[in-house]
Write a protein that binds this DNA or RNA. Structure first.
Lengths: 141, 141
DNA sequence: CTTGCTCCTCTAGCCACTAGAGGATGTACC
DNA sequence: GGTACATCCTCTAGTGGCTAGAGGAGCAAG
């Protein structure tokens, strides 16, 4: 049947906002769809699947460049999926790293908050902890 | 003694990069320091402490606006630290939320990666999982 | 025919920096 | 004194992934 829908409906069905869809077209992540006589974009079922794919990948934290590669792979189903696997594995490692950083950070924040007797700033553990410059020189989370 | 150091040394001692220090001055997070005859910035010990405070807070993921408030609090030690406490608590909640999102994400990634038999793309679980649009409409991590 | 919705393009803004151009100053060595 | 080189200065523009808004055109219902 391949019925086509305008951008608003595509946004509703895919969960990707209208300006974001146009942005994806602009950066070449989504092909420019055909237009009506009145110059309006018309998306078919394949476009909607592609949009859903992009949305899901963004939800999982994949960067646009990674998604670009994954989409190319999806378009060539007979290739080896080693590349997709590598991208996913690299991303998993990255996520693990971020979780570890956040957990460490959380522990310090927790300590800060629980130790704060909440009197004057002069005795505040929150301010004191932040002022303490005897910490290591690590990376931002 | 209050010896003053140029921006490069301040960067070395605080762990904040030179352009970032200038950026902090530009956005008013750090007061503009005095200059030498040759127009070079000179930072004293108090400036370095302030820089270390900012750096540590940024490491802990506090936003610049939150840091601005925390710095104002630090400058008024007789005030109640309830505000500082509230900022830290709000941030802790935010961090908890981010950790939870990342853990959920991690689980899905892990599943993707381990289920991938690594043959052709046509059977790839990574691609398949991303294509699967039968998922809930949640938020980006 | 007018109201009100959706759509169009285009530009500018968000955050927290980072990169680079193009030039001035300071220091170490000969 | 000269010269090589590091460090500093200001300024503009770019990053990623959108988001907001201006200013206008198209389209369906009453």
């Amino acid at each position: 049947m391949m019925q086509s829908v305008p951008i608003g409906e595509a946004a509703r069905q895919s969960g990707v906002k209208v300006p974001t869809i146009r942005y994806y077209e602009q950066i070449g992540l989504l092909a420019a769809p055909p237009r009506t006589e009145g110059n309006r974009r018309l998306y078919d079922a394949a476009d909607l699947r592609r949009l859903a794919f992009i949305r899901h990948a963004r939800e999982l934290g994949f960067e646009v460049e990674a998604i670009r590669t994954l989409l190319t792979l999806q378009d060539n189903p007979n290739q080896s999926c080693a590349t997709a696997d590598a991208i996913a594995k690299a991303h998993l490692a990255e996520v693990d790293h971020r979780i570890a950083s956040l957990m460490a950070l959380r522990a310090e924040l927790e300590r800060m908050v629980t130790e704060c007797a909440c009197g004057r700033v002069a005795e505040c553990r929150v301010i004191e902890t932040l002022s303490d410059h005897t910490h290591h020189h690590g990376k931002l989370a």
